[in-house]
């Protein structure tokens, strides 16, 4: 047995439970049996690696990436932040992938039948790799709210989907970033599936420091991944 650093467990006080009945897609999809505890072997301590060369020069700018004839419609914004772990250490050189609807609340997806216009100059997908301080920055359009079929007159609050890797497959995270002061948040069963004390971790902050004069407002969204833990590794 050699001592090696493993990863702290998923914090179930912070993550939503699988079964969250107000979100009506969960009852048939949530596992019903307890998760089996798996020791952290090399299979868990490793994970996919992407460097700065993985992303294209416009991948972080959703306002330019798919623009064909003009800039996309809507309010241009900057979304930036730092990815750290629970021990406060920056998480450098990890891939972030984002996707979102356009300013009218329409996803560029065949399954989205919301009666709102597709923007021919906006796809709504982007990605970047964190720098050596774990920082990232996207330029995009503020996403619109949109209706969904969960219950009568259900509307999703404005949000951007985030996918992150981190140093191992165990730090994999997919989440959603919300906007401050959105009155739809208190009505949203996906947001409210998160334990109350942790919900604000998903709400970005308006940041004048990140905003650029005469150009775009900035929103800060910091992300925290699982920390490290000294665990014995069987070798």
């Amino acid at each position: 047995m050699a001592a090696a650093e493993g990863f702290a467990p998923r914090d179930w006080d912070s993550h939503p439970p699988y079964l969250s009945p107000d979100y009506k897609s969960t009852p048939l999809r949530a596992p019903t049996k307890p998760l089996v505890i798996l020791p952290q072997s090399l299979s868990e301590l490793t994970g996919p690696v992407y460097g700065q060369d993985a992303v294209g020069p416009l991948d972080h700018d959703l306002t330019k990436l798919a623009a064909k004839t003009a800039e996309p419609n809507g309010e241009r914004i900057i979304v930036a932040g730092q990815v750290r772990d629970e021990d406060g250490r920056p998480v450098p050189n990890i891939l972030l992938e984002v996707w979102q609807p356009n300013a009218a609340g329409r996803y560029n997806h065949d399954d989205d039948q919301h009666d709102a216009p597709i923007d021919p100059n906006f796809l709504g997908a982007g990605r970047c790799v964190t720098d050596d301080q774990g920082r990232y920055r996207f330029i995009t359009i503020k996403p619109g709210a949109y209706p969904w079929g969960n219950h009568f007159n259900a509307w999703r609050p404005n949000h951007i989907h985030f996918s992150l890797f981190g140093p191992s497959i165990l730090t994999r995270l997919i989440t959603q970033m919300y906007f401050p002061g959105d009155p739809l948040l208190e009505l949203d069963p996906i947001f409210n599936g998160v334990p109350a004390a942790s919900r604000q971790l998903l709400v970005s902050k308006l940041s004048i420091e990140l905003s650029e004069p005469e150009w775009a407002l900035g929103y800060e969204f910091n992300i925290c991944l699982r920390g490290r833990l000294a665990t014995p590794l069987e070798t």
């Binding site: 912070s14 997806h109 997908a125 989440t175 925290c224």
Partner: peptide, 20 residues
């Protein structure tokens, strides 16, 4: 100490972001 950012569902519209 910072707390882990909560997970959220991938939702139904991931295709152009993750598997374009």
């Amino acid at each position: 100490a910072p707390k882990q950012t909560p997970s959220q569902t991938i939702g139904p519209y991931f295709s152009y972001g993750l598997t374009p």
